[in-house]
Design a binder for these strands. Structure first.
Lengths: 101, 101
DNA sequence: AAAATAATTCGATGATTGTCGAACTATCCG
DNA sequence: CGGATAGTTCGACAATCATCGAATTATTTT
């Protein structure tokens, strides 16, 4: 079974976070996760108009940037936003994203 | 004399803003401008470790993203952060950037 | 008028990125 | 067991990007 690597939040840098969030697809992912109120979603459950491989890629970028946390559960990869940690490290960031427009 | 084009804030999109701020050089520019407390700085006055052409490029990107406002004054290009407008469009964004780490 | 200053524009180059189909792996279910 | 499901990995490809030196423009200063 695959295990995912997540950076320690202390090592997460703002430019990398910005970079990860600069893609509309990825922003959409994070927003949908935020809307699900803490319940983890399978990659599959997130509505997204790209091929499977691309989808996987975007999740990987968000993961490497420290924004999401992923855990295998059977064949599904359940993922959620690292809400508390991010709020502490970058106060206001998630609120900014939630305020969709 | 050169005149600069600035997007209307209504048309400024979050992914583009994030993209602009995902480069360490540009983040440094914005932070220095924010520190100057509203006083406009010449491009030249901003401390930055890149060639002249690159510097010019980064200012252009920030301008196109709606983050800074530039105005020619003699040979200098005085620039400042579009603070009030940005605070209104993306509340919390600038605060996030100021909280340097 | 000439030199100095401030910044833009123009290629060019190498690196990174988003996208995809195809092949692959691992788990679940009938 | 054997198919279906959920994701990952691997090239490949086109597009975008950061960077630079050199040439250019416009203003200020001497």
């Amino acid at each position: 079974m695959k295990t995912y690597v997540h950076p320690v939040m202390r090592d997460v840098e703002l430019p990398a976070v910005m970079q990860a969030l600069s893609d509309p697809c990825r922003l959409a992912i994070v927003r949908q996760l935020l809307e699900s109120k803490g319940r983890a979603l399978a990659c599959n459950e997130v509505e997204l108009d790209v091929a499977k491989a691309t989808r996987s890629h975007h999740f990987e970028v968000l993961r490497a940037a420290g924004i999401i946390f992923t855990e295998m559960d059977g064949t599904k990869c359940m993922t959620s936003v690292r809400r508390a940690e991010l709020d502490k490290r970058f106060p206001g960031l998630l609120k900014l994203l939630s305020a969709a427009k």
